[in-house]
Nucleic acid binder design. Structure first.
Lengths: 336, 336
DNA sequence: AACACGCAATGAATCGTTTCATAACGAGTT
DNA sequence: AACTCGTTATGAAACGATTCATTGCGTGTT
């Protein structure tokens, strides 16, 4: 006997299977004496409910699926934590899949979630997923997009206004009197990067005499940032920017190192530096980093909330697009 | 109609449900003509297998559960990736739970995994879980411990020899001629911390005139390390150690910052510094960090392999304890 | 004494897939 | 023509929990 079933419990307790189920799910409907007998039978047999059977009968699971672009990115792990905590409060479980920015893996996870009959899906999409989402919706699985605003207003989404964030970062640098601003980031195909750059451009265009230089990187990593920083440091002093806006904090940390190597450029005196995301490490960097904070956990919990509401409602649910404002965090890298 | 079932597919294709199942699971047993008809019915109806029903019938799921101490720690996310990749190759899915070093959450995840009838569990344990694991085993769910050697040889485990790692780190510092060595780490209740310290002590005791000072920290974080570094910097020069071994890289990074603040102590000239884990950031720190590398992904994949082998075997499986050797990675923080 | 009512407990039906013993059929053999 | 294979296809049974219409029983009412 691999494991006991309700039938075994019922037999041992001398009751029907229906009663065992009632003890488990509607204890108030069962007399105290019988409850006790059933409980002790459960203990004696080490009975554990079979989730697959429950789910089959229920028709839907108590899980929701989450597909993130990069599980190693602190932004997404915070987002996931936010979603998980909110889900736990409603007795739901979150299954996390890591697409690694690969459309194939994204699709595989969506397939898996469909087979599991998850209650809904949170998705930070790689490519154009709208057709796939419409298919999911037709099959009764609602989706909420995270960290991405959609043109398509028929889906709910929760995101941060990256355009405003970029504008905010650039405006801050401009307010320090800096005028030769460099944007470090890439690849440009990543929506968030493009939006942050567009926001920065907007702020810079509004100030006479301010210029924007774009330094493209291959990825959003510390090493890419370091390369960018070193290339700036190696320029003649007159050709260096006086401020850098990095598309995320990993790049900013790398840039900082590239600049400071061998007693090079002083941050913030010679070049002010600001990042994006406000990851935990930003505050602890050698020169604590200014950054644009995103409420990552809040994005996760809000998206989950929206999703559950949509899942519970009958069709005809009105999708909503939630956009959180980013927040400027000023630290040493843009002070002095 | 929420979603189509095999029955619907069978009806549309004009065959029996058994045949549909055969098309799905043993295509070679079905004639080409029928296969085609069934496939097109599947496509037309948008049929998606119900995993709960499959699993109920099969008696066991195609998932394995993994409980980690801290999902945000790069060491564990690498370990998880290793396990996931290996699992995917065998058509298994890994469900990741984060215990956050909390016994209650650990237990909740184990309950959940039991209800899901997972094929096995990988566990980086918080407290004394042996009784719980014996219970799981009785119910047919094998367990492999990760990142923890057990006294109890009846369970398989995959770990790195932290004692050897600690010894290796200290021996490296001693080989540089350093004699006043400080160990930065804590809380001591964490097994890994205690083992690394014990290893260091062993190496230091073997060298005449070498001393070991233990600087306890509250946690294994950058901020704790920074505090430790600052307190060392504020000492009179004669009372400072000439080398620091930090219990993990986050502490080492923090210590580095604490030491270097305000043009303080030079690393490695005045104080050599080595960390543990070799997280990605170590190589990219302002002074690239020497560290003790653990094969995190390999630990994950090996543990998964052991687990599957144990799950497939009938009872009478001989548990094995795999211990990987740590590896010394020398970078600038201990050179010069 | 007859009746109605409410509370407990019952157990058959159900969810969707897989499996397996059986049937149907055609081709080859004697 | 009777037979044995071999190949396909069939459909009922099984997995385990839940649900719900039904039964049984004790209490209170008239």
């Amino acid at each position: 006997m691999v494991s006991a079933s309700v039938k075994d419990v019922a037999a041992l307790a001398g009751v029907s299977v229906g009663t065992v189920s009632n003890v488990l799910n509607r204890p108030q409907k069962v007399s105290a004496e019988v409850t006790l007998r059933v409980q002790s039978a459960i203990d004696k047999l080490g009975f554990v409910r079979n989730d697959a059977a429950r789910q089959l009968r229920a028709g839907m699971s108590h899980s929701i699926g989450l597909v993130v672009l990069d599980a190693a990115n602190p932004f997404f792990s915070d987002l996931a934590r936010g979603a998980e905590d909110r889900a736990a409060a409603e007795n739901f479980t979150v299954l996390v899949g890591n697409s690694n920015e690969d459309e194939g893996r994204e699709s595989a996870y969506l397939d898996l979630f469909e087979q599991q009959r998850v209650r809904g899906v949170l998705l930070s999409p790689v490519g154009n997923v709208i057709p796939r989402l419409e298919q999911l919706r037709r099959r009764g699985i609602p989706t909420v997009l995270v960290d991405r605003q959609t043109e398509n207003k028929s889906f709910s989404s929760v995101a941060v206004d990256d355009l405003a964030g970029g504008e905010m970062a650039a405006a801050h640098l401009l307010s320090l009197g800096r005028r030769r601003i460099a944007f470090v980031g890439g690849p440009a195909s990543i929506r968030q990067v493009a939006d942050r750059l567009a926001g920065a451009r907007k702020a810079i265009d509004a100030v006479a005499g301010a210029t924007l230089e774009v330094i493209a990187t291959e990825s959003l990593t510390v090493l890419s940032g370091r390369a960018a920083g070193e290339s700036i440091r190696s320029r003649p002093e007159a050709e260096r920017p006086d401020a850098i806006f990095a598309a995320n904090d990993l790049l900013a940390v790398g840039a900082l190192q590239g600049l400071m190597l061998m007693g090079g450029v002083k941050v913030p005196q010679e070049i002010a530096l600001i990042g994006y995301d406000d990851i935990e490490f930003a505050a602890a960097a050698v020169v604590p980093l200014s950054s644009i904070r995103q409420p990552s956990a809040l994005i996760g919990s809000t998206a989950l909330e929206l999703l559950l509401r949509e899942a519970e409602s009958e069709d005809g649910f009105a999708p909503s697009q939630v956009v959180f404002p980013p927040e400027l965090i000023v630290r040493a890298s843009t002070q002095g």
